[in-house]
């Protein structure tokens, strides 16, 4: 199993990053929706801390993933993909990365502004340099939630596009990112 990407498929590490972020996001959103409406309680405090740890981990993994992407060939779109689809794919991938970086940052800064700074895994204190500020925290909370909604929409588009490639176009686009090493169709074969 190739560790690095090749021109026509993603390597083990790129796929690991992709699906690790997928799992982390499931955890993060589940915690976010549950904790938000809980009355202030021990469980709520615990869930906020867990949510912050997961978010900080997403941030770290995305940075590693982008670094890995820069040093690896990115498998190309199938030949014959229309220009608008290439543009749409490029734009949505860019936005996905951007949100996955900006969203944890807004959460991190907001936490310190609410006097509840990030202590990663309960061990490493990472206070933001901006300090406490309740008014700004509320603005950042809106930004954080809006980005969350935008992220879900983009993930929806991402999934539909992948299914479009797999089910309608029957190409390798989804197959090459599957978590397990899937056999790729050789170009030009029809089933």
């Amino acid at each position: 199993m190739p560790f690095r990407n090749t021109p026509d498929r993603f390597g083990f590490l790129a796929r690991l990053f992709h699906w690790l972020i997928f799992l982390l996001l499931i955890g993060s959103f589940t915690l976010a929706w549950t904790m938000h409406d809980l009355p202030l309680s021990l469980l709520k405090l615990q869930m906020y801390s867990w949510h912050k740890w997961v978010g900080a981990t997403v941030f770290l993994v995305v940075i590693l993933r982008l670094g890995w992407r820069l040093t690896n060939p990115v498998p190309a779109a199938p030949a014959g993909t229309p220009g608008w689809q290439r543009l749409a794919a490029g734009l949505s991938h860019f936005l996905l990365y951007a949100i996955l970086i900006v969203m944890p940052l807004t959460g991190w800064i907001m936490s310190s502004m609410k006097n509840l700074p990030l202590v990663y895994l309960g061990v490493i204190p990472i206070p933001s340099p901006f300090g406490k500020n309740e008014q700004w925290a509320e603005i950042l909370e809106e930004v954080h939630e809006t980005l969350g909604l935008l992220l879900l929409i983009l993930i929806g588009v991402h999934v539909l596009a992948a299914l479009y490639h797999h089910v309608i176009l029957r190409d390798n686009v989804l197959r090459r990112m599957l978590p397990w090493p899937a056999r790729l169709k050789s170009p030009g074969t029809e089933t």
């Binding site: 615990q46 801390s49 006097n115 509840l116 700074p117 309960g122 204190p125």
Partner: peptide, 8 residues
């Protein structure tokens, strides 16, 4: 709480 310091 959860080893997160909050002051007042």
């Amino acid at each position: 709480q959860m080893n997160v310091p909050s002051d007042g």
